[in-house]
Design a protein around this nucleic acid. Structure first.
Lengths: 153, 153
DNA sequence: CAGAATAGGTCAATCTCCCTGACCTATTCT
DNA sequence: AGAATAGGTCAGGGAGATTGACCTATTCTG
């Protein structure tokens, strides 16, 4: 393949990343907008749901934001009764976050939109497509995962 | 595979999308920051470079933003001498955008970072990985591409 | 040819989301 | 006792996007 074709193929990959991300967030954004919440709230809900009673600091490191950037959306979620926090048994300074029943319900609805989206996309291709996609995405995410201290999914 | 494993695999796909996107924008963001530019400017540079003398309206539809949201960054780019505009020959209302020499140089540097990133990632896997990744991303991007009036890459 | 439609620019107010910096409490470690 | 850690909060600011209104040029149409 001539260089210019390979270059065009790599440009297409950049473009796919951009439009793909937009496609990924479009549906949850609509649902969130109805409740006066944003993407920041969704990210918190998602990782609180996945991380098994994470501390505030764990969420902060995972999202790579400052505690001030976290405090606002987190306060919204507490006020709406979607997130609960309890003091850690061993270290009373540490707050462990969890989802309330309505919090779980909303998180489930939001993430279900994205899971179904991916389920449909993977089902429309071959198993190799999904495996290849995951292999590429793992490499793309590698640096950020390491910086966040997450286990590679 | 039990349902809960498939669900966890789909959750992992969501997580990969989030961290993957962060990995994708990390390097250009650093370079842009040094010049007082942001991601919005990069998106404009990228699509002006790829779209062959696009009009302002074409860029606006491609990025799915309002003309006011476009005007600010576009003015910055004009003032820094990175983007030039000329009136269309046939319709004098229409402005066609193009990159100046320094604009092409900056765009090339920024996009080269992302092209090399993808080139390294694709080279580290099998050709099937790349093909699978593209197949999945095309489906993920499909709705947004259609809404933007772009040809699927 | 008059009037509507289109392409684009601009001003203003507002919003989300994130940032830095400073300061505070409570708790635990040394 | 004093330092370090986890977390919360206030102040100020900036980037990027929104809606709404209004403006100029230019082209299309009845």
């Amino acid at each position: 393949m001539p260089d210019r074709d390979r270059r065009a193929a790599l440009d297409a990959a950049i473009e796919l990343t951009y439009f793909g991300y937009r496609g990924f967030v479009a549906m949850p954004d609509r649902l969130l907008g109805e409740r006066g919440l944003g993407r920041a709230h969704h990210r918190i809900l998602f990782f609180v749901a996945r991380l098994d009673r994470p501390t505030v600091g764990e969420i902060q490191r995972t999202l790579a934001v400052t505690k001030q950037a976290l405090a606002g959306p987190l306060r919204d979620l507490k006020r709406q009764g979607l997130v609960a926090w309890t003091s850690d048994e061993r270290d009373a300074r540490v707050r462990r976050l969890s989802l309330t029943r309505p919090g779980r319900a909303l998180e489930a609805r939001l993430s279900a939109l994205q899971r179904r989206h991916y389920a449909a996309i993977f089902a429309a291709g071959t198993p190799g497509d999904e495996a290849g996609w995951r292999a590429v995405m793992r490499r793309l995410a590698a640096g950020e995962l390491a910086a966040s201290g997450r286990d590679p999914p």
